[in-house]
Amino acid sequence: MKKVSILVLLSLSLFGCGDYSSSKHDVVNTLGTIKNLELLEKFTEDVSNNKDSEVHVVNYTDEGDPVIHDLKYSDEKLSSTIDTRFDEFGDHGVIEDTCKRIKII
């Protein structure tokens, strides 16, 4: 399924989860406090310059569970993978999609 854009909302939660640990190479959103935002900015810049790149975004829910959003740009294709398997109240699935552009709000 093609989408016109990816909407990366970085506004989820407060606490970390014991089953998943984010790394210093991840963009991490904890209740609106965002660490490593420059990694997401670099990714969007790379996409604008048609340069292969990827970024790993971890958004924590109000309950402290991580929702992982991987973005990858390669060979002029933009792919998005959202993993909710660590989210106790989520659908415990993985959603993969390809997109034509990225839009950060």
Rank of each mutant, 00 (worst) to 15 (best):
L12T: 09
K100H: 10
G93I: 01
E96D: 12
D97W: 00
E54V: 03
N49P: 01
H25D: 15
L31C: 14
Y20E: 06
D65T: 08
V55Y: 01
T61F: 05
N36V: 02
F89L: 13
Y73S: 02
I68A: 07
M1T: 07
V8K: 06
L10D: 02
G18K: 11
T98A: 07
V67F: 05
D87V: 04
K3V: 10
K51H: 09
K3P: 03
K42P: 00
L31R: 13
D97N: 06
S5W: 14
T33F: 15
T61C: 09
D19N: 14
S21V: 02
I102G: 02
N50T: 04
T84C: 14
G93R: 07
N29W: 11
V4P: 04
E54S: 12
L9M: 12
E45H: 08
D52E: 05
E38G: 08
E88M: 08
I68R: 03
R101P: 05
E54Q: 11
S80D: 04
S23T: 15
K3D: 08
S22F: 10
G32A: 06
T44A: 11
G16T: 15
K2H: 04
L37P: 01
F86R: 01
H92K: 12
V94A: 00
S23K: 12
L7A: 13
Y73V: 05
G93V: 01
L40W: 02
I68P: 04
L40M: 04
V28S: 05
D83K: 03
D87N: 09
I68D: 06
S22K: 03
I6C: 09
N59Q: 13
V94S: 00
K24A: 14
D91W: 05
T61D: 03
T30G: 10
E41Q: 10
V47N: 01
L78C: 05
D83N: 13
I104L: 14
H56K: 13
N49G: 00
D52P: 02
L12C: 14
E88R: 06
I95P: 00
L10K: 07
L12V: 10
N50S: 12
E45K: 10
V55M: 04
I6K: 06
G93L: 05
S22M: 01
R101K: 14
I6Q: 07
K103R: 13
R101A: 15
K100Y: 13
Y73C: 03
H92N: 08
Y73N: 02
K77R: 07
F43W: 02
Y20V: 04
L37G: 04
G18W: 09
I34D: 06
V28H: 03
V8G: 07
L7I: 11
I82R: 03
H56Y: 14
L31S: 15
D26H: 12
F89K: 08
F43P: 01
V28D: 01
V57C: 12
H25G: 13
T30F: 11
G16K: 15
V55N: 02
K103I: 14
V47C: 02
E54I: 04
V4F: 10
G64M: 08
V94D: 00
Y60D: 08
D65M: 09
K42R: 11
K77P: 01
V58T: 10
G16P: 13
D75G: 10
